[in-house]
Write a protein that binds this DNA or RNA. Sequence first.
DNA 1: GGTTGATGTGAACGCATGTTCATATAGGTT
DNA 2: AACCTATATGAACATGCGTTCACATCAACC
Lengths: 212, 212
Amino acid sequence: MARKTGSHSDITGPRVRAAALKLFAAHGFAAVSMRQIAAEVGVQAGALYLYTPDKQSLLFDLMRDHMQAVLDAWGAEDKPEGPVSELETFTRFHIRFHLERPEEVFVSYMELRNLEPENFEALGVMRREYEQELETILKRGQDEGVFDVDDIKLTTLALIAMLNGVTTWYKPDGRLSLARVEAIYSDMAGKAVRMPRRKERLRKLEAQQASE
Amino acid sequence: MARKTGSHSDITGPRVRAAALKLFAAHGFAAVSMRQIAAEVGVQAGALYLYTPDKQSLLFDLMRDHMQAVLDAWGAEDKPEGPVSELETFTRFHIRFHLERPEEVFVSYMELRNLEPENFEALGVMRREYEQELETILKRGQDEGVFDVDDIKLTTLALIAMLNGVTTWYKPDGRLSLARVEAIYSDMAGKAVRMPRRKERLRKLEAQQASE
DNA sequence: GGTTGATGTGAACGCATGTTCATATAGGTT
DNA sequence: AACCTATATGAACATGCGTTCACATCAACC
């Protein structure tokens, strides 16, 4: 049943997380105090401890929930057939998802060093799981001869860094629409790894000769 | 003349900056105290104020000196002719220069939000100046028809983000040599913006017809 | 309608922060 | 040998930190 006061746990809880996210993104974890977060919520600092055991957990929960959301959303995405389409789907998904959550992304990539070792490790596992998705796509494309990638791990990291960079400058009301940004990044990523047609023809020729 | 104690300004000064850089890179500006920096130097906290007016200046000076070093080094670089070679020179320069100064780079890109507005602005000017160098190369390539870039500003930022990403994972004693990393990134950047040969032929044909 | 338990206050805890300053030291200069 | 000054100390300042806790408040339940 709904209460007016005395039972705001279900309201205040999310508000605490929202305030923490906003402030961490704006000023950094270490630069934000519990009292600032409390003020943003409209509550005294002590009340925060009804919703989090400590400041560190507040940060870790935000980051873990975000990474889990990324993984879940990618899992739920429709995957087309073929590495080229898969790569396009991945890059478009990544851009779209990240632009819709700029603060979560910012915090997740900036505050890693403020995590306690145990939490850092847990998040690293999740991040590598996500990177693995892209790596698998690149590997498949390489095997099928449609991608020309020198080093798959390096390329994975380079592409993700490029895609993540979008959050540092994109403004929803800016010059470019989300759809346009999505298309441009997706196109660049595709071109960066795709096998040039010349080289492709050469490869096919070699493969043909080898099988004769 | 050399003193044993009493006159270490020329030694302690650089050591203070080195300690600050190391600690800021490892834990973040806000998370590092003046006492920690002093301890790293082997001095009491008060002594730091013989070398910097305050903590903020310590950060800003590091970042400004780094950006100035980038600009100077790029200015001194031999520039080949033609956008394709220029782009390769730029990407290789960027990777090499940044991998040789991982801590400066890390601090310069992570601590922007801890700068006071005035310092933030000053650094923004320098960063845009550097980005302008790449933007000019892309623009020239676009005009000459050897690059196929949808949006020059966006592409500039995307490429720089990709190149900067290298500092987050590269380890000098790792699997890949600096030269190899340089080559791979440079290659990816080139492919991401280069005009496909098919499209190039088509363009030339159109241009020819238009001039008849 | 009195009791209970969830929700929040506000003061207090010990400790760390950035910065200042009177004081000490030990070199270089005369 | 006496003085000067650059260099460093270490204590002190006011302020803020994360966290705890005795206490208040008030909706929900018996």
